[in-house]
Computed example of a mutant assay.
Amino acid sequence: MTSGIGTIHGVGLGPGDPDLMSVRADRLVRSARNVAFFRKAGRPGRARTIIQGMLSEDVREIAMEYPVTTEIPLADPRYNACLSSFYAAQTERLRALAESGEDVVVLCEGDPFFYGSFMHLHDRLMDHVPVEVVPAITGMSAAWTATGRPMTWGDDVLSIVMGTLPEAELARAMLNADALVVMKVGRNLPKIRSALAQAGRADRAVLVQYASMEGQKVTPLTAVEDGPAPYFSIVIVHGEGRRP
């Protein structure tokens, strides 16, 4: 235990390959006394899996298990209410540790400030205890790197859209973008495919699964069958802009 108030570190681990972690992230993880991480109940959690073998023997592990993932539709008010209560409870756990003088490393897949769960803790903690964030390589960066082609050229406009959006909104965003990243694919793949077709981008789209991780796979979307895609899936449409 340290004197004074401890610090909560939101540590980005990158897209999945431990070799892609930053030096700072590696140092914080290996020296941590308290490590917290999100996971689905009954699962080890991807963030915890990434740092397997890196923790000290006397580390305290704090598993934060989601009360719901896909069991309740996003549009159902119960979904937000359930997660809000969950984040509030986890905030109190971490705040209590920090106020007792303990530093805590919160493991974050990808970058902590890019569509990550840590953001919900950050906003609840920042006015009460010190919070520091370690940025990281994002999953989308690993995905377009896996394709072996540059993502943007010259004046290309890059758009990032969520597959959870209504199809009409997806198609409109896709039509206005030069280069495109579609996240949260999963069960939304058929809708994403349809929106890409409406925007005239279906023949240029690529599905990247498990970027930088074991099982990495890059497939033209036209060769992918309909049905749910794995959780770690991103659709990429490369830009074709100005070149010297």
Score class of each variant (00 low, 15 high):
residue 75 A to N: 13
residue 200 G to Y: 12
residue 148 G to L: 09
residue 224 V to F: 02
residue 89 A to R: 15
residue 102 E to Q: 13
residue 50 I to A: 05
residue 26 D to T: 13
residue 49 T to V: 10
residue 162 M to S: 15
residue 85 S to G: 15
residue 179 A to T: 10
residue 116 G to S: 13
residue 209 Q to R: 15
residue 102 E to I: 03
residue 100 S to M: 12
residue 225 E to D: 12
residue 122 H to W: 10
residue 123 D to A: 07
residue 162 M to G: 10
residue 49 T to C: 09
residue 58 D to L: 05
residue 21 M to W: 06
residue 203 D to W: 09
residue 106 V to E: 00
residue 176 N to I: 08
residue 66 Y to C: 01
residue 98 A to M: 08
residue 170 L to H: 05
residue 3 S to V: 14
residue 81 A to N: 15
residue 127 D to W: 02
residue 86 F to W: 05
residue 10 G to A: 11
residue 231 Y to M: 01
residue 115 Y to T: 00
residue 214 E to F: 05
residue 139 G to R: 07
residue 237 V to N: 07
residue 55 L to V: 11
residue 44 P to C: 03
residue 18 P to Q: 03
residue 152 T to P: 02
residue 167 E to F: 08
residue 55 L to N: 11
residue 83 L to E: 04
residue 169 E to H: 13
residue 148 G to V: 06
residue 167 E to C: 05
residue 212 S to W: 04
residue 106 V to Q: 00
residue 231 Y to F: 13
residue 48 R to S: 08
residue 191 K to Q: 11
residue 92 E to I: 05
residue 18 P to V: 07
residue 11 V to S: 00
residue 99 E to C: 10
residue 88 A to M: 07
residue 146 A to H: 11
residue 98 A to V: 01
residue 16 G to A: 11
residue 165 L to W: 09
residue 138 T to C: 11
residue 176 N to D: 14
residue 29 V to I: 12
residue 234 I to Q: 07
residue 242 R to L: 09
residue 228 P to G: 13
residue 92 E to Q: 14
residue 169 E to Q: 15
residue 30 R to L: 11
residue 221 L to M: 11
residue 18 P to C: 12
residue 200 G to Q: 13
residue 65 E to S: 09
residue 218 V to P: 07
residue 216 Q to W: 10
residue 60 R to C: 09
residue 122 H to G: 04
residue 74 L to G: 00
residue 153 W to G: 06
residue 111 D to P: 08
residue 2 T to M: 10
residue 105 V to H: 00
residue 123 D to S: 14
residue 96 A to D: 10
residue 39 R to S: 14
residue 99 E to M: 15
residue 132 E to S: 12
residue 194 S to A: 15
